[in-house]
Nucleic acid binder design. Structure first.
Length: 188
DNA sequence: CCTGGGATTTTCT
DNA sequence: GAAAATCCCAGGA
């Protein structure tokens, strides 16, 4: 196992798109009972600001989306299509709604399909109990990096976001990022 | 190869 | 009541 270091608070205080790219190759660590599940992030999407029609926050602050308006470094977890949870990382300053959706990860110490946001949450047993979890201090769910294993920018591809056809001119934004040639990426 | 629908629940209109 | 940041399976071409 690589030596992992938890991402510090200042990691989350960068531009959302920079964070979305930097998260590639980082690790999700989730405590399940006495065990830890570790997965390497291979695909992310950025949801940025109150005008991004693909973002839940574009309709204003509600009980569901208020986490996106909160401070950077929190987990925003919501239920989609009544069945699947999606795991997001809140970014930007308080009262500015932005987040990075983790779409896919590569399981390191377990074996399960994680090539999609719904499946990822099922594999990590992420549900709304973890909504609002502070990734900087939580023992149950946090992000880490292997400082010796940085991703080269040449491995990062960008593309249109998935499942946001209703988002008008925002649907074609190249706000999805993934690692080239990684078999766990949900879609090329 | 492709398209379409069902599962299931929260949220907004 | 309809749509949703999804996934899986069936059926047709």
């Amino acid at each position: 196992m690589p030596k992992l270091k938890r991402l510090p608070a200042k990691f989350y205080h960068q531009n959302t798109f920079k964070i979305a790219k930097e998260l590639l190759g980082k690790f999700i660590i989730c405590k399940i009972g006495k065990k830890f599940l570790i997965g390497k992030i291979v695909e992310t999407e950025a949801y940025y600001g109150p005008h991004d029609l693909a973002s839940h926050a574009s309709r204003g602050k509600t009980a569901r989306t208020k986490i996106m308006f909160d401070q950077a470094g929190l987990a925003y977890i919501y239920l989609i299509y009544g069945m699947y949870y999606c795991f997001n990382i809140v970014t930007e300053a308080k009262d500015f709604p932005a987040a990075v959706l983790i779409r896919a990860a590569e399981p390191l110490n377990f074996s399960k399909a994680t090539n999609g946001p719904g499946k990822l949450c099922r594999a990590f047993k992420i549900d709304k109990k973890l909504n609002g979890e502070n990734l900087i201090i939580s023992k149950n769910l946090y992000l880490a990096e292997n400082p010796k294993d940085r991703i080269k920018s040449s491995q990062i591809k960008n593309a249109k976001r998935i499942g946001v056809d209703y988002a008008g001119k925002y649907k074609n934004k190249l706000w999805r990022f993934y690692l080239e040639d990684n078999p766990f990426v949900s879609k090329k």
